[in-house]
Design a protein around this nucleic acid. Structure first.
Lengths: 141, 141
DNA sequence: ACAGCCCCTAGAGTTCACTCTAAATTGTTG
DNA sequence: CAACAATTTAGAGTGAACTCTAGGGGCTGT
């Protein structure tokens, strides 16, 4: 197919350092890395895509350990489809919960910033600080 | 006012360990901690609220260092309002960006889970893997 | 008075995810 | 052939955020 990619190339294309790529491989996060005659790692375009996927998982808080498990399953082939899906499902749930929490935090930040606006505008501390009136959130529908 | 709160109480009320609370204080994250005659820390309800706020900041990725800066400003009083607001503003921006990223990741996870569904249902690997067709996102309007 | 509990300090240890160093090897270019 | 860039390995070092240990003090109940 296309020209093989060397580790330096892969590093610049995925925004990681050469060190990190080798470390990722040692951690079992990069399947199917082959070597050339001189012992150098040779990658393909699929590795670029794989690392982009790994990046998504990492940036949404999946641990290296879980990524290792997932990668091992991928390397084992079709028999592991169910388990792979389970892992992604569990992760999706975590991400959903996180988005909810962060969205709530956003509201808190908004009201706190507002609080500072009021304070600066009036010159005196508003009584309705989020700290003392912790956001009237209704648990019921 | 109300009864003073001891460190063990505060720990169970804020979901932190006693160790962590002392460490937080040493890091400059808990302002206005007074001691009783025996040298023990005495807290008030405000500390509970403060720690809940700190928790929000931490859980949305603010570093201890930034939280220390914010706490120091709060301890310095009214003169630091502008800077405090700036910090929260910058943090809000970061949280917003994170929510966007995590929401995109959610879509990726959805399509990947879908991909596994197809694979299991048909018994053969679908060609339209997210890896090879990386979500048709248009950069232009 | 002594057990049991909570509290104190200083500082060591742990976990995670990198990040880098040292020393050697391979392939390319003048 | 010599210089040079890029790569290799094993393993050490880093920074963040806890997390715990050791050794001690003080109040309360029996």
């Amino acid at each position: 197919m296309s020209d093989p990619i060397r580790i330096g190339q892969l590093a610049s294309r995925t925004g990681r350092s050469v060190h990190t790529l080798r470390w990722y491989e040692a951690q079992g996060l990069i399947p199917g890395v082959i070597r050339d005659a001189g012992g150098r790692r040779r990658y393909s375009e699929q590795h670029v895509a794989w690392l982009q996927f790994m990046e998504r998982l990492r940036h949404t808080g999946m641990s290296i350990k879980q990524m290792r498990e997932y990668t091992a399953l991928v390397a084992q082939g079709h028999a592991t489809l169910t388990r792979r899906q389970e892992i992604l499902n569990a992760h999706r749930d975590r991400v959903r919960r996180a988005v909810e929490e962060w969205t709530e935090a956003l509201e808190l930040l908004d009201s706190k910033i507002d609080f500072y606006d009021q304070w600066q505008k009036t010159g005196k501390r508003p009584s309705r600080d989020f700290m003392t009136t912790p956001a009237q959130k209704r648990k019921h529908a």
